[in-house]
Design a protein around this nucleic acid. Sequence first.
DNA 1: CGTGTAAGGAATTCTGACACG
DNA 2: CGTGTAAGGAATTCTGACACG
Lengths: 145, 145
Amino acid sequence: MIEVPTQLKEVFDQKMMQFGIGDLSRVTQVSQSKLRYWESKGYIHPIQIQTGQNRKYSMATLSRVRMIKYFLDEGYTLPVAVKKANEQKETISVLRKVMVERFVSIDEIDGKPAVNMGPVEDQPGKKLVAIVDLDGVTMHLVDDK
Amino acid sequence: MIEVPTQLKEVFDQKMMQFGIGDLSRVTQVSQSKLRYWESKGYIHPIQIQTGQNRKYSMATLSRVRMIKYFLDEGYTLPVAVKKANEQKETISVLRKVMVERFVSIDEIDGKPAVNMGPVEDQPGKKLVAIVDLDGVTMHLVDDK
DNA sequence: CGTGTAAGGAATTCTGACACG
DNA sequence: CGTGTAAGGAATTCTGACACG
């Protein structure tokens, strides 16, 4: 049984991660001039860094840029694409919370890695595990030893 | 009901994300000269980029650097810290698989956001949902309408 | 409005050498 | 071994202006 260590969860919950405009542009396929223009309109916000001059962005902004681009590609105007991106904000924070709070430990079941996701309501004495094998991931209720 | 779109899953499964040595150093609190030395020893590997000269790193390398630093801080020598980091590699890919494969959609239950995680073995007609509220995340087996 | 480009300066990263222990 | 620093050049990003539609 392996506790899921804090630094591992940070792999997914990259609150402190930051990167420059070149990386953001390359990863999202949105040009630097677009990103600077969107910023001038208040649609995206770089992190403020005291030491340097260059813009730094967070993972939250990365996903925001991805979503704005997605809606732009769907044919929406920039202001509408931004509005639609705003509506998806909560979705991300919900997924993140489930992941960070419920991935308790990694066990081994039948020789396969399994994520212990803890108890399920109205299922006393049981715990939920996600077993990973080559066919994919299956969920099981097992006795909580 | 909101399908969890592919671009949202990419928020967590950042296969294509990349960033420079300054960002990696700032985020992990590992100096640039350490990172370059570790690379010269083959302990970490930048992504090869055709266009530029500057190093770019992946999220996988970020978590690797975090883990090496963690074991270094615990008092291990560099080669041992690297070996211990290697052993944790699988843990990350397991967590990632569970997340990407089992976060099916976002529903609303009792006015609260809930992640639909799909069926559980030996629980026909039911599905697993993770309900998020201010107190945290609880798992429930509910009828699959 | 929304985006691209050329221009010159500023911030960042590069390598190879050298220092220290 | 494992890391830091000074040095000069290379790659990256900055801003404000201008172009186009």
